[in-house]
Amino acid sequence: MNTELLGQLLINGIVVGALYGVVAMSFVLIYKASQVVNFAQGEFLLIGAWTCWWLLTKWQLPFIWGFGFTLVFMTLFGLLLQVVVLRPMIGEPIISVIMVTIGLSIFFQALMKWMFGVFAQPFPPIFETGQVDVLGLRIQTVYVMSLGISVVIMAVFAWFFKFSRMGLAMRATAFNQQVAQSLGISVRTVFALSWAISAVVSSVAGVVVAVVNGVSSALSFYGIKVFPAVILGGLDSVVGAVLGGLIVGLLENFAHFLDAEYLNWGNMYQVAPFYVLIVILMIKPYGLFGTKDIERV
């Protein structure tokens, strides 16, 4: 058995899985706050990455500025998207809202292709590419950086929902909108804010992936990969989303290992998460951490 390959792939799995976790978290954020299943989550990564790329290459901005402007832009983009497109959909049947987000996904993919072309573009080199040795395995420093950023985002999320005033308000809205309103929380603000935060966080993940792999429409595939992660963790659990993301990342790479070493079927790593998705839906439809309602009368 090729243990070195296995080790490399598992580390790869953790790094990618953490990114899946971040995207899954931002997906769950929207779902929890406003009960919208956002099929355009992957396009947030794509738009964020292209925006950053455009600022860095066409305007030659230093990375910090380009990244900063990207975050500001994505905040406004998320807000605007909610206010203009999703707000009028409040109260409509869930299937209509899903169709709208699928439509958004197709629209933004096409828009990005139209604006930036269909070819993958490398990101300008931002950091010196180096390697570090961990337990005899060589890891690229960008991977370490990527993992670090994911962990920081998760920590900020945890803090936000546990201690900040707005985070508590978002949890209250997720629990019951009428109760939230009776406490003086503006549900509209919470909806808009959840989309803004989701867009920003996803775009950070998008930029991180783009720095490693370059920008291409493949980024939006993260939005699809999020589904096994989220369903595994439970659709309404932020912790579940993170763990689901990690598990899917590891699983993918482990499947890749099995495939490369023994099966030679090819592309196993792309399908494996969805097999797992089917199995989970059969045996544990609420996922690992999906809430069981507390009821006490």
Binding site: L168, R171, F175, N176, V179
Partner: peptide, 9 residues
């Protein structure tokens, strides 16, 4: 009516 406290907090 019915208290309506937030059960998961």
């Amino acid at each position: 009516e019915g208290r309506r406290i937030i059960a998961d907090m």
